[in-house]
Simulated assay, not measured.
Amino acid sequence: MGDNKFKEFFQLGAVGNYFIRVFQKPDPNQKSNFNLRMMHGINKISILVFMGALIIWLVRRFM
């Protein structure tokens, strides 16, 4: 019973799965358009900038 709660605590959920999925190659069978590609491109940039800022903040905070 305690093991199940531990697994549930570390599940990524819908948002976590999107962060992983946005960096994968798109499915060639799925139809894509320019707007969708641009949206995913901007999301990739935003995620990378956020992660970079978080790393810089943590380094400054603990060094």
Rank of each mutant, 00 (worst) to 15 (best):
Arg21Asp: 15
Asn33Glu: 01
Lys25Glu: 15
Gly16Ile: 00
Lys31Val: 09
Phe34Thr: 04
Tyr18Cys: 00
Asn4Phe: 07
Gln11Gly: 09
Ile42Gly: 06
Gly16Leu: 00
Ser46Arg: 13
Gly16Phe: 00
Gly16Ala: 01
Val22Ser: 02
Gly13Tyr: 14
Asp27Glu: 03
Ala14Cys: 01
Asn29Gln: 07
Asp27Ala: 00
Phe6Val: 09
Phe34Trp: 10
Gly52Asn: 04
Gly41Pro: 03
Ser32Gln: 08
Phe34Val: 10
Ile42Val: 10
Lys44Ser: 07
Ile56Arg: 07
Leu58Met: 10
Leu48Ala: 15
Met39Lys: 11
Val59Glu: 02
Leu48Gly: 08
Glu8Cys: 13
Gly41Asp: 05
Asp27Lys: 02
Gly13Thr: 07
Gln30Phe: 12
Val49Thr: 11
Gly41Lys: 05
Gln11Ile: 08
Ser46Gly: 10
Ile47Leu: 02
Lys25Ile: 11
Phe62Gln: 04
Tyr18Ile: 03
Asn17His: 02
Asp27His: 02
Gly16Trp: 08
Phe10Asp: 10
Gly52Phe: 13
Ile56Trp: 09
Asn33Leu: 02
Arg37Lys: 15
Met1Cys: 14
Ala14Thr: 09
Arg61Lys: 11
Ile42Ser: 08
Lys25Asp: 07
Phe34Asp: 00
Asn43Trp: 03
Asn35Thr: 07
Gln24Pro: 01
Leu54Ala: 11
Lys7Cys: 14
Gly52Ala: 07
Lys5Ala: 12
Gly16Tyr: 06
Asp27Gln: 01
Ile55Arg: 15
Val15Arg: 11
Leu48Glu: 08
Glu8Val: 13
Leu58Trp: 15
Leu36Glu: 07
Arg60Trp: 12
Ser32Val: 08
Gly13Met: 09
Leu54Pro: 06
Ile47Ser: 03
Met39Tyr: 03
Arg61Ala: 12
Phe23Arg: 01
Val49Arg: 10
Met51Arg: 06
Ser32Asp: 04
Ala14Asp: 02
Leu54Phe: 07
Ile47Gln: 02
Arg21Ser: 15
Glu8Ala: 15
Gly41Ile: 01
Val22Ile: 10
Met63Glu: 08
Leu54Thr: 14
Gln24Thr: 10
Leu54Gln: 04
Leu48Cys: 09
Gln30Asp: 08
Lys31Arg: 05
Phe62Glu: 07
